[in-house]
């Protein structure tokens, strides 16, 4: 069913909307590219000659590649549990899912330091097992997992609540088991919301600064993700390098958006069919 427009928007309203987006989004984004190319393309491309840049790109993609699938699985499982079943502690689970949204990212990083730091609760066992959490990839992954935990679940819960459990019940009475019901009925019904959730989760995982900054230790070439690398370069007055690195992040975001739009265009029919009856 298509949404009908109720008429033309008033020019004032439209103007405010366009100006708002231009000032808050386009202007800063444009600045990034202007600053990155301030001294010409040669200097811009110079950052790609540094191994630190490549290691930051690799690390950022690695952390996202671990955190996003884990939180996608968790998000689907949590949304499934919360919307299709009743159980004690449901309210608590919902509150906990929202917690990372309301906690400052710095605190989200700090909790891992308190747990695994030199005098942290789990410092002893970790040291004896010879496992390095802080200032290493596991710490970055944990902090990113914590920060991006709500995205998929939050995207799915309202949709699955609206859809109810009717179709699943129908599938079961028709002889389908739990697995088939999930993969043939539930998953196709939520796949677009799941995709949006994953994209949001991914954007945040690659862009997260605060929490990751606390646990990273800023070791160049080892524990610097792209956002942290930008900060280091900026603090070293390497403005072109900082902005050039920032364009990589912007580029990753644009790639994500292009994938999303491409999928929407490719599956437009199915999308409109599955939205509602």
């Amino acid at each position: 069913m298509s949404e009908k427009s109720i008429g033309r928007p008033s020019p004032i309203l439209l103007g405010i909307g366009v100006a708002y987006v231009a000032i808050l989004i386009l202007l800063p984004m444009g600045m990034v590219f202007v600053e990155a190319f301030r001294r010409g393309p040669a200097e811009y491309l110079d950052i790609f000659a540094h191994s630190d840049t490549w290691s930051a790109i690799r690390l950022t993609l690695l952390v996202a590649a671990i955190a996003v699938p884990l939180n996608a699985v968790f998000g689907v499982a949590a949304a499934w549990a919360v919307t299709k079943f009743d159980f004690p502690g449901k309210g608590l689970l919902l509150t906990l899912i929202d917690l990372p949204f309301s906690v400052s990212p710095v605190i989200s990083g700090l909790v891992w330091v308190l747990l695994f730091g030199a005098s942290g609760w789990l410092a002893g066992p970790m040291a004896s097992a010879n496992v390095q959490i802080l200032f290493a990839v596991p710490g970055l992954v944990l902090a990113t997992l914590f920060i991006t935990l709500p995205f998929v679940a939050r995207e799915l819960i309202p949709l699955m609540q609206e859809q109810g459990a009717d179709e699943e019940e129908a599938a079961i009475t028709l002889g389908a088991g739990g697995f088939r019901t999930f993969f043939m009925v539930t998953l196709p019904n939520i796949k677009w919301a799941l995709l949006y959730g994953v994209l949001l989760c991914n954007a945040r995982a690659m862009g997260e600064f605060g929490a990751v900054s606390v646990v990273s230790g800023h070791i160049r070439g080892q524990t610097n993700t792209l956002p942290l690398h930008v900060e280091i370069l900026y603090n070293e007055y390497n403005f072109v390098g900082a902005f050039a690195t920032a364009t990589i992040l912007a580029g990753l975001a644009i790639v994500t958006l292009v994938i999303k739009s491409g999928l929407e265009w490719r599956f437009a029919d199915e999308l409109s069919a599955s939205r509602r009856h």
């Binding site: 129908a170 009475t173 196709p188 019904n189 009856h277």
Partner: peptide
């Protein structure tokens, strides 16, 4: 059970 159920709002698989 092989009990064919027709639901009030049909519960057709929309996709």
């Amino acid at each position: 059970r092989r009990a064919g159920m027709v639901f009030q709002h049909y519960a057709l698989f929309r996709h």
